[in-house]
Design a protein around this nucleic acid. Structure first.
Length: 250
DNA sequence: CCATTAAATTCAA
DNA sequence: TTGAATTTAATGG
């Protein structure tokens, strides 16, 4: 195999040598799902792959938008920085998700930043190539539309939760979100986040999160070992915020 | 919010 | 694998 770059992902211990869509294993990827419908092969061929180390920022707020990122492997947080330097985490994204999609249409500059939470592999596709593929492939376009609709729904729910829920409820809501999205591993949430990151997502401060966590621990609703958070009974937590939960998911 | 201490992670030998 | 160095959590002012 000449010319193939080998990369070693710390967490998977698996060497990936081939990033082409044809051999991609990621069934959640919208591109992969629609690969057999996509006739214009330039689309797939022009795709760039880039790897990010943990903690590396690959989208900077205010930078011009030239394309979109698809996560091939890894986890990413997307955020916006507020007026006083405070970070508001917009969402966490994992394999198969799209980053930077808001800038796709008419926006010229990113209004968000994104950084890798672990070593991550991204597929980068130029606006132009994606536009062409979408125009000639209705199914692909429809799937993309569903994705946008979901994101919109979630972000609308988030506005409500931040304005109407108490701190405790927002923290619980955040825990449930992480649990739904990333699941459990050995009884702990499968995504280690700092208290600050919980706070930035829930719209509070690190101290508040720490205090809520302490209370929840006393009530035995959660367990915590450093960054690893365990939820013994998800249902109990759900009940506590059930009045707010007319909607759901992702 | 900040300062202090305890605890957990990382890193390199 | 260990422990020293660094980062992060928890508490109280």
């Amino acid at each position: 195999m000449p010319n193939t770059t080998n990369i070693l992902l710390k967490n998977s211990r698996k060497v990936i040598t081939d990033f082409s869509c044809a051999s991609c294993m990621n069934e959640d990827c919208l591109i992969k799902k629609n690969l057999n419908n996509i006739t214009n092969s330039a689309f797939v061929e022009n795709k760039k792959t880039l790897k990010c180390k943990k903690g590396q920022q690959f989208i900077i707020e205010g930078a011009p938008v030239n394309g979109l990122f698809f996560i091939l492997k890894g986890t990413v947080k997307v955020f916006r920085t507020g007026i006083n330097g405070r970070e508001q985490i917009v969402r966490f994204a994992k394999e198969g998700e799209i980053i930077g999609h808001r800038g796709f249409g008419t926006e010229e500059y990113y209004s968000i930043g994104a950084i890798a939470l672990k070593d991550t592999v991204l597929c980068y596709i130029s606006k132009k190539d994606l536009q062409e593929a979408l125009l000639e492939n209705p199914k692909f376009g429809y799937d993309m539309m569903l994705f946008y609709a979901n994101e919109l729904n979630r972000s609308e729910s988030k506005v409500k939760s931040i304005s109407q829920m108490t701190v405790r409820e927002r923290v619980i809501d955040t825990l449930l979100y992480i649990s739904r999205k990333f699941g459990d591993l050995n009884g702990f949430l499968n995504l280690p986040l700092s208290r600050k990151e919980y706070a930035d997502y829930a719209g509070t401060t690190e101290e508040q999160v720490i205090r809520v966590f302490s209370m929840l621990k006393k009530e035995e609703l959660i367990s915590a070992k450093g960054k690893k958070i365990g939820i013994p009974d998800i249902q109990v937590l759900k009940n506590e915020i059930s009045e707010h939960n007319y909607y759901l998911d992702t």
